[in-house]
Amino acid sequence: MVKDKLIFFLAFISTIFLFLPFTWLLSVLLIKGAPVIFKGGLEFLTGIPPLPGDGLGGIGTVLEGSIFMAIIASLISIPISILTALYIVMYEGGLFAKILRFLVDSLVEFPTIIIGISVFIIFVQNLKLGLNGISGAIALSIIMIPYTTIQAIENLRQSKDEYLEVGYSLGLTDSNVIKLILSEGREGVITGILIGIAKIFGETAPLLFTTVTSFNIFLRTLTSPITGVPSLIFNFAFSPYNNWLDVAWGAALILALTVTILFTLARIFTRRKL
């Protein structure tokens, strides 16, 4: 059929158009970033960012900051997300569940810069938390919660549809039924968490308002003035110094790789469910 062939041709063309920006992006990152990383070696991952015009140094401080904030943000988000998702799923159709669902859905679409500003006003200024990893993690957790929650809702709902009646039919108590639903839906929940972490790992805007813009401090205490990889890229990329530009490219590649790995892991977990 001519029509079938035409449709196939159009689909092929659009696929190429979809691939073009992606491959272009990846090639630029690799061309500019990979030499930097090879040049810096392991020190690029552990070292301190250089002074302007100095050597290459590393992104150890901000990488540590990003990991630290991701951990704290996860610690905040995971229980909240799971409980919220569980509530929404178990009381589906109820008014409060509907409101919660609406809030979660709106939060996904919320501009992250506004989340950054809000956390700055409430936590940094009023609660005097200061510009540090904790404030950053709070902002990031607010971004992470809706992603993780929505993913958890989808999977827990499926698990509930499958196992709620089964659980009760086996004479289980309410709490055991919930445990069963969580346990059978856990892979989807883990997927959601990984996607959430991937999402916040690359977030820049909230960090600009909640963390510092100095990049050479390692974490000593929980409230050490630190920041994450994206804010280093943001600052270094707009600088006139060649060595800072190099660091920015290297950091960008590291960031892209991390996020890709997280997404791949998330995919693997989703697939295992099926």
Partner: peptide, 12 residues
């Protein structure tokens, strides 16, 4: 109901 369901099983 919990006791009843242990005495009356179901398969879907």
């Amino acid at each position: 109901p919990i006791r009843l369901r242990r005495r009356v099983g179901i398969v879907f």
